[in-house]
């Protein structure tokens, strides 16, 4: 084995740790968020090095992209929120915050030292356990390989996600919807995106949005054979939605009621409906009848992509429609 790949891995790993440390300890919040997004991008590279292209795509689209956008949006709302409220109150708030912040940005030094020591002991134990695991084991890859033909897709990761462990994926879609319902239930969540659109951005979005929708469709389709799939496609779709929104496009009022909610629940609803309907054909729960796996998975993925895109865009925008 040549030394070059090892050197690259070492550099990547050290960069990860350095970025994480800086992201968590930088005094400036904006810088912290930017460093965190960089961490997500480097993680994407690490996943490529580990031959996990799906995770790399998801990490970059969701871990760095969507999470980063959510963090930046939250940061933007944290800062002007103060300047919009009553001047006097703001000044009081800010001084109060400054005073307490200096005293309490972090725990006291003795406590920090104690926590650090405890964590080092914990990591040593965890490291020992991981070392014990250092016997090559195939895991379940042989089993997945053996039954891939029955799954309706040719790509193992998609087969696990949408068929072998489809029940998890159904609930994962529910988690996304749940997060949005939770965000909407917070009556005070402020709005974003009501500012005037930038003309240049508007023009760019009109060009980009159709392209992104095409990319999303491609990602769903390719997921059956290669890395890709509903979650990556959904995040591209969500990004398209955000861009359109930022460039001034709005859902018409009549569409923000139940039609929007219908799009949001479509992924879970279609998945659950198909999963239950098969019981009527003498199949187990979520067990597709022979020959029907492929169209069923495609239908689920298309519905899921639409919902994921809509949910992610709605999460970014924040306030209720």
């Amino acid at each position: 084995m040549s030394l070059l790949p090892l050197a690259i891995d070492l550099v990547l790993a050290l960069t990860l740790l350095w970025l994480a440390w800086r992201a968590l300890n930088s005094p400036d919040l904006f810088r912290a968020v930017v460093l965190f997004i960089a961490l997500g991008l480097v993680l994407g590279l690490v996943w490529v090095r580990l031959d996990a292209v799906d995770i790399a795509l998801a990490e970059i689209a969701l871990g760095a992209g969507v999470t980063g956008a959510l963090l930046l949006a939250a940061l933007a709302k944290l800062q002007p929120a103060a300047s919009q409220t009553d001047e006097l109150q703001t000044a009081e708030l800010q001084t109060a915050e400054l005073q307490t912040d200096q005293a309490a940005v972090m725990a006291p030094i003795a406590l920090r030292l104690f926590i650090a020591l405890l964590l080092l002991a914990f990591l040593a134990g965890l490291g020992f356990a991981v070392w014990q695991l250092w016997v090559p084991a195939p895991g379940l890859s042989n089993l997945v390989e053996a039954r891939l033909d029955e799954s309706g897709v040719a790509y193992p990761v998609t087969a696990v996600l949408l068929n072998f462990r489809g029940y998890d994926t159904l609930l994962e879609l529910a988690v996304l919807l749940l997060a949005l319902i939770g965000v909407w239930s917070l009556s005070t969540a402020p709005h974003l995106g009501d500012e005037e659109p930038e003309p240049a951005l508007a023009a760019l979005s009109r060009l980009l949005a159709p392209l992104m929708i095409l990319v999303a469709a491609y990602l769903v389709w390719v997921g059956a054979y290669a890395p890709g799939g509903a979650f990556q496609a959904g995040s591209v779709l969500g990004a398209a939605g955000v861009l359109l929104r930022l460039s001034g496009w709005r859902l018409s009022l009549s569409a923000t009621g139940w039609p929007l909610r219908l799009v949001l629940v479509l992924g879970v609803a279609v998945f659950a409906f198909i999963g239950l309907a098969v019981i009527g054909f003498d199949q187990p729960l979520l067990g597709y009848p022979p020959g029907w796996a492929k169209p069923a998975i495609l239908a689920i993925e298309l519905a899921a992509t639409l919902s994921i895109g809509a949910i992610l865009a709605a999460l970014f925008i924040g306030g209720r429609p």
Binding site: L50, D51, A52, D54, I55, A58, E59, L62, G63, V66, T67, L70, L71, A73, A74, P138, G139, L140, S141, V144, E145, P156, V157, A159, V160, L161, F164, R165, D168, T169, E172, V175, L176, L178, A179, L180, G182, V183, L186, A189, F231, L312, L315, G318
Partner: peptide, 26 residues
Amino acid sequence: EPDPVPQAMVLTGIVVAVAATALALA
């Protein structure tokens, strides 16, 4: 080939983490 099962689990985990982050920030 890498074991696809933990890969699928991580994909699920990433989505859950994004959802949790969105709720926590809100």
